[in-house]
């Protein structure tokens, strides 16, 4: 359950005078449930990519319990992310042709030759927890809400300390979105993970501890 400290973070894109993202300081307590909101292009996804190590920060520090993700090499960022971060994306990114269970286990399968002991049971438990009954069903035949629930189970299979979701409900109808939102919050609490969710969904945001609002790459005073 790591805490995050962002210091002097600045991202510039070529040809733009003002930095796309400039965060002098942002702290997130261990186990906190944080919402990230703001208009399109305000830098939400860029920030999530930086704090999950998907992209490398040019300047500044991104400290997760003392590990500066901004300083890690690409390979080490991959390993760190695999061990510490569970990701849920708007578009699910499930692998068609594989069953729900195989999709949940895929990150573990690819990371090592043999599945760690108990991984299969953990996958079954998580799928049951998110309400997927037919674990052997091919994911392409699932509804969108079911797909996102499989994605949530996948994000938690490696028991990460950090759960990051980027617009997890944006491509779902209200009902399915509410289910996924509830699952994210409940499962983050059950796993004791720090939860960071970028979203426009007020029903999701209102259930979080704190909402950070980004505008043009800068943190605005939080509401709520």
């Amino acid at each position: 359950m790591p805490a995050l400290t962002v210091e002097e973070l600045e991202v510039r894109f070529p040809g733009l005078e003002t930095p796309a993202l400039a965060i002098p300081r942002l702290g997130i307590a261990a186990g906190a449930r944080i919402g990230l909101t703001g208009p399109s292009g305000s830098g939400k996804t860029t920030l999530l990519n930086l704090i999950t190590g998907l992209e490398r920060a040019g300047t500044g520090r991104i400290l997760w319990d003392g590990t500066d993700v901004a300083r890690l090499s690409e390979g080490r960022r991959d390993r760190w992310r695999a061990a510490n971060v569970g990701l849920v994306m708007q578009d699910f990114h499930l692998f068609d042709g594989l069953s729900a269970r195989d999709n949940v286990l895929l990150p573990l399968r690819l990371a090592r030759f043999a599945l760690p002991a108990g991984a299969g049971e953990e996958a079954d438990r998580l799928l049951a927890r998110v309400g997927i009954e037919r674990r052997g069903q091919k994911v392409e035949t699932l509804s969108r809400g079911q797909k996102q629930r499989v994605a949530v189970a996948r994000a938690l299979i490696a028991r990460p300390g950090i759960l990051v979701a980027d617009e997890p409900t944006a491509s779902l109808d209200a009902e399915a979105g509410a289910v996924v939102a509830a699952l994210l919050i409940e499962l983050a609490a059950e796993a004791g993970a720090t939860l960071i969710v970028a979203s426009h969904d007020p029903r999701l945001l209102e259930r979080l501890d704190r909402v950070v609002r980004l505008e043009a790459g800068r943190v605005r005073p939080a509401e709520g």
Binding site: D78, M89, F95, P107, L110, A158
Partner: peptide, 20 residues
């Protein structure tokens, strides 16, 4: 690309992506 890149985002090592 998306699918393959996504594999890495969700924890697959680069080498595994290469191998696949």
């Amino acid at each position: 690309r998306r699918q393959i890149g996504a594999l890495r985002a969700f924890g697959a090592p680069r080498l595994a992506v290469f191998a696949v």
